[in-house]
């Protein structure tokens, strides 16, 4: 019992630090990929191939002066980045990233590679995603600045609109896996047809995956849906007035959110830790590969596609994405009902 408890604490610490590091790593990847796409070199001076650049950024942010507008609401101004950062980390708590393991016989009973095994995990992720809008809305309102407020209003309208399609895409997967637990959903995707084509839900439900990922990009406020911080119009959107570490919290929340959405997409659609050709014992490696691919896709998209116009975004969300996701859910449900999965 004790060894299992220690293992669970280790997993908790590992996930927390992995998320922190992944945010730093993503900053570097973002800069490098952007540089390649624009035929530049990107960061090369700090450390080998600029690898220490994120840490230089963090040190710079820590030593900057913390500024707060005189007209800002003191409490909410500092509460907002805390809410953003907390929500971004909290969502990962229910995401499993590997099968059960005994750590090569170290433990007497297997533990799941997951912080908390909740049997309504999918709904918990959805709930935390719906909470994260508060960080942005409060940041915009508490700053008492027009750019912040406009950014926050855009962002909350956008997040609430795309949450619906996000939920519908989640529901289509629930119907297929017949469970609300992410572990069960991943295990429903085990195996392969003809030994090569994996039984992933992305193959069975490609429309659902596209909807989920599109809505995920909108939920994380990334390009081409990065209206809340559209720099040409809104300076920096909801975090215009933030500096130093409170800005760093928003910045980090954005990257951790990307990692979380990618991890959830991997669990729901890309088979989680079940990958053909990769043995089950190192399933987490396959999981890592898939997340990395999705994260690269995020960055690739940001530096390739221009930003939508705001009315186009809302029209797309309500008139295209939502009807398609409802139809997809209906179709998937009917398919499961009449043909089975």
């Amino acid at each position: 019992m004790n060894a299992v408890l220690i293992a669970e604490i280790v997993i908790l610490g590992f996930v927390f630090h992995a998320l922190l590091i992944s945010a730093a790593a993503m900053v570097w990847v973002e800069r490098k990929v952007a540089a390649w796409l624009q035929q530049r070199l990107g960061p090369i001076l700090v450390g080998p191939a600029g690898l220490l650049q994120p840490f230089a950024d963090i040190i710079k942010l820590i030593f900057k002066e913390e500024l707060r507008p005189a007209a800002a609401d003191k409490w909410l101004f500092y509460l907002a980045p805390a809410i953003s950062a907390t929500c971004s980390f909290a969502a990962f708590a229910v995401v499993p990233f590997g099968g059960e393991t005994t750590f090569m016989g170290l433990l007497d009973r297997p533990v799941k590679l997951q912080v908390a095994d909740v049997n309504v995990a999918v709904l918990v992720i959805f709930a935390i995603a719906s909470m994260s809008v508060y960080g942005i809305v409060l940041a915009g309102w508490a700053s008492n600045s027009k750019y912040s407020l406009l950014g926050a209003l855009r962002s909350s309208a956008q997040m609430i609109s795309y949450e619906l399609s996000y939920g519908m895409a989640l529901a289509s997967v629930l119907v297929m896996a017949n469970s609300l637990s992410l572990t069960d959903i991943v295990n429903a995707q085990e195996g392969a047809w003809l030994g090569v084509l994996p039984r992933w839900f992305v193959v069975l439900n490609p429309v659902g995956f596209l909807i989920f990922f599109t809505a995920g990009i909108a939920e994380t406020n990334r390009a081409p849906f990065d209206f809340p911080e559209a720099e040409q119009e809104l300076v920096a959107g909801y975090h215009t007035e933030y500096s130093s570490m409170s800005f760093a919290l928003f910045f980090q929340a954005e990257y951790v959110n990307m990692v979380t959405v990618s991890a959830v997409a991997t669990d729901l659609f890309l088979g989680g830790w079940h990958t053909p050709l990769i043995p089950a014992a190192i399933g987490w490696f396959g999981f890592l590969l898939k997340i990395s691919f999705l994260l690269f896709f995020y960055v690739w998209m940001r530096w390739t596609l221009p930003r939508y116009r705001y009315d186009q975004l809302m029209a797309f969300g309500w008139k295209v994405l939502l009807p398609v996701s409802v139809l997809n859910l209906l179709f998937v449900s009917a398919w499961v009902l009449y043909f089975g999965f």
Binding site: V120, L123, V124, F126, A127, S130, M131, V133, Y134, V137, W141, L149, L153, S156, I160, E163
Partner: peptide, 23 residues
Amino acid sequence: FAAVIQIVVYAGAILVLFLFVVM
């Protein structure tokens, strides 16, 4: 289930609406 729905519906939808109107 009721716990999660409480967060999704109340915190995620109804109170956001209130906050919107107040702002």
